[in-house]
């Protein structure tokens, strides 16, 4: 099942793209596993996710913790802690 992955702010800058459509392997079932898998896609991903505990995640536009299961989410976003207001 193809999933849309979005990157924002410095995560986007480090990876060099704002979004991509990826087919995830069946053994990637949680946010944390997805981050490990993405790290293996290239040095730019490895650098973006080097401090994985800093990066925040949203599944289908809802904040989740990195332990969350992907649960068939169609849109997954990675970004730094928010700084609006």
């Amino acid at each position: 099942m193809p999933v849309k992955i979005l990157y924002f702010a410095w995560v986007r800058e480090k990876i060099g793209k704002a979004e991509e459509i990826l087919d995830l392997p069946a053994n990637v079932t949680t946010v944390a596993e997805l981050m490990v898998w993405l790290k293996g896609r290239g040095p730019e991903y490895a650098e973006a996710f080097a401090q994985g505990d800093v990066i925040r995640v949203a599944l289908d536009r809802n904040h989740v913790k990195s332990t969350a299961p992907l649960s068939g989410a169609r849109e997954i976003a990675f970004f730094p802690p928010v700084t609006g207001g």
Partner: peptide
């Protein structure tokens, strides 16, 4: 809540 939850980033 807006400051900690709304997905905005300032550069």
């Amino acid at each position: 809540y807006l400051k900690t939850r709304a997905p905005f980033w300032k550069k």
